[in-house]
Every structure is written in C-alpha cells, then in structure tokens.
Nucleic acid binder design. Structure first.
Lengths: 220, 220
DNA sequence: GTCTATACTTGGATAGAC
DNA sequence: GTCTATCCAAGTATAGAC
C-alpha cells in the first residue's frame, strides 16, 4: 500500500490532513464539548501537529465553524431526502422522531448546542453560528408547512413561529438529554407524539398538497 | 462612611466578600458565559483578589455552582409566589410569558443554559447541575398539573412528559435568543400563546381544582 | 481575611528547519 | 505540508506576608 511522503505515522488520515482536522473537530465537539475543543486536542485526535490547525484554518474558531458546516451540510441533505417521503402528520412525526434520535445518538445535536452556547464567550461567533442555523430553521418551516399554512391551525400561528418553536424544542431536549446522558425522556416524548399523531391527523391538522378546504372531494 | 479594615478599595462589596464573589459569578455567567467565568474575571468583577475564589470555594466550579444555586433559589421563590394567583390557562400563559421575558432580560435563563452546556467539558459538573434542575422541572410539573392531569388532555400525555417538554422549550428558546441577542421571536411566540389561550380555555383544556369530568359531580 | 508572589499547566499563535 | 521549537498570554492553585 502507498505511504504518504513523510515519515510520520499515517494514523487516521489518508493524505488529507485538512479533512482529518475537520473530522477530529467534529468528534471532539460532539463528545467533549466546546471548551475542550482546543487546537492541541483536536490535532492530537487527527494525528497531526497542533500548528497545522493554524496553517489550514488560521484560528481554532474557524476550524470549529468548518466542523459545524460539515455536519450541517450532511444533516441538511439527509433531512431533505427523508422529507420527500412524508405524506401525513404520522409520517412527519415518525421522521422527526427518527431524526432526533439519530442526532442525539451521533452527537450532532450536541455539537450544534455546544457551538451555540460557546458562542456566548467568543466575540463574533454568535452571528457566524446563527448564519449556519438558517438552513435548519428553513427545513423546519418547510417540513411543517402543511400544518402551519394549510391546516386547521393555519392562521392561528405563523409558519415562522412554529418552526422557531420546533427548533428550540429540539435544542432544549438535546441540552437536557446530554446533561446526564439520559435520552429516555426525550425519546419517550417523541414516542408519545407518534401515538398521538393519528388522532391529530384525523382532526384535520394535515392537509394534502392542493387541498385547501374540506368542501371539495376532487382527487385525494 | 465606614471603610473596611484593610486599605483595599471598597468596590462593590460591603464587608461580605464571599457574597460579592457569588454575585460577580452570577453576573459573569449571565453576560459573558461559562468559558469566560474564570477565577480572575470573577474576582476582578467582585473587586477582590483571585486567590479568594479558592479560599472561599476551593475551586472555580464550586463557585459557579454556588452562583447557580443563588439564582435558582431566587427564581423558585418568585415562581411559586406568582403561581399562587393562577386561575386558568390564560393566567398560566400570562405567567409563563412574564417569567420567560424576565429570565431572558435578566440573563438568568442564559446562566442556566451556560452551566448546562459547560457541564459537557467539566467532569462531574453534569450531575451537579442536573440535581439543581430538579426544582425547575417540579415547578413546571406543578404549574401544568391542571392541564396534564385534570383536563381534556389528561391521559394523552403524562405530566412528567409535558413538564420535560416545557423546560426544554424554555431552554431552547433562550439558546436561540441569546445567539444574536434577538428576543423578538421568543416573545412573539408567547404573545401568540397568550392570544390563543382563551380559545383553549373554552375547549376544556383547563379544569378547576375539583372538577374531574363533566359526567359526575362526586369528588375524586 | 485579604493581599502579593509565584509555581505549574495549558492554550493560541508564529518561526523556521526539513 | 508537516514537524519541532518557542513565545506569550491566561488560567488554576498554593504559600506566605500582613
């Protein structure tokens, strides 16, 4: 097998140190948190020298933002893919439950929360993180659109409001779950929602693509 | 005016350095975040020497926990006082909106979130914070009790589940608000809830102290 | 109780050899 | 591109003077 030029141990990186650093940063943020995500720790996990963090990213914060970008992009793709198959409130709750469980398990949700909370003590990080949060809010708004703008609830609450609340709930549940590693309460909540979804579905909370009022029996 | 014994500047502390340190820690956690809450920063704000943190609290973390205790106790008292006057869903939403706006404004919610998120990178802090979170969850459960156990929703979801979700939403909204200092979305959400409350009230979501079901007038 | 001084550690960032 | 070496700043914690 081919070795990289220098004599350093090949470790976890196959010729792409920059990517190895991003991956390592993701890993550290996920499991050790923002405060532990130092240049030395991350570089150590990537199997390379600490100075390379600055060579590639200029600063630690920029590396962490790159890590956030990485998972955000992955998640966004997966979410939108999954959303395509949703045809009712039951489906949507199933999807939300699955997504949340995955993000909780993988630590992706934790990473996001750490970056948000860490932004408080790093000037300028707040706006950068917020910009990267926009896609998540948009995804939530899109997913909830059949409820917020075409259902029986339409007009009672704005789509943006519902999306904001949903993202907040997602983050808050992660925060609590991560506190003691107990994901049971959050998962139970989604399980409950899953069981309640059919009821709400029948009550007219979800409407199909082109159905605006229950008066016409055109095509379903 | 009386001066304290030594020649140091009287600053913000009137003879009680320990309390001044706690207050300063509260202040720093509120506005600068967990990562900025170092012995030097806090002691500086308290107007005393950095070494006194260790003299009084043994470690920085223990000082921060004392700060968390301080605000938790204050909040708990205020909440329970306010809860006494609640007589319907409308009242409850008003109370929640007011409490949340206050906690957002004062930074108390931010302090809690910072401690939770910071716990990730400090071994042992997680359980300590969780223990201090129990009263908040209990308060939420008590406040929501008329909805979760005696209303039309009773049986659909457990009281613990609803309380957990409520606390999570509270924390998540703070997280988002603090990100860019924009509290508008969160406040708009509560404003919306406030307007919707009367509707839900009429729909039977709230029941009085001794009303258990519309069929029997016996006591439960 | 409070301060000064200091030991020790860790982290961000740069310079320069290879 | 990667490493070693190093500088400097900041943090925790302790010792000891007052």
């Amino acid at each position: 097998m081919r070795r990289t030029g220098s004599a350093s141990r090949p470790s976890a990186r196959a010729g792409n140190t920059r990517q190895a650093l991003v991956d390592a940063a993701v890993d550290v943020l996920r499991h050790e948190g923002f405060a532990a995500a130092t240049a030395r720790t991350v570089a150590g996990r990537a199997g390379c020298n600490q100075g390379l963090v600055f060579y590639y990213f200029g600063s630690v914060v920029d590396l962490l933002l790159a890590a956030l970008d990485e998972v955000s992009e992955q998640r966004r793709r997966r979410y939108e893919e999954a959303l395509a198959g949703v045809g009712g409130l039951g489906d949507l709750v199933d999807l939300a439950a699955r997504i949340f469980a995955e993000d909780l398990e993988s630590g992706d949700a934790a990473l996001l929360v750490e970056m948000i909370a860490g932004a408080t003590s790093t000037p300028g990080l707040g706006v950068a993180v917020k910009a990267r949060l926009v896609p998540w809010a948009q995804f939530a708004a899109a997913a909830l659109e059949p409820i917020s703008s075409r259902s029986a609830l339409a007009g009672l609450a704005g789509a943006g409001e519902i999306a904001h609340a949903t993202v907040a709930l997602y983050l808050g549940l992660e925060l609590l779950s991560h506190l003691d590693g107990d994901t049971a309460p959050a998962l139970a909540l989604f399980e409950r929602a899953r069981r309640l979804a059919p009821l709400a579905d029948m009550a007219g909370l979800w409407t199909g693509k082109d159905q605006t009022s229950p008066t016409t029996t055109e095509e379903k």
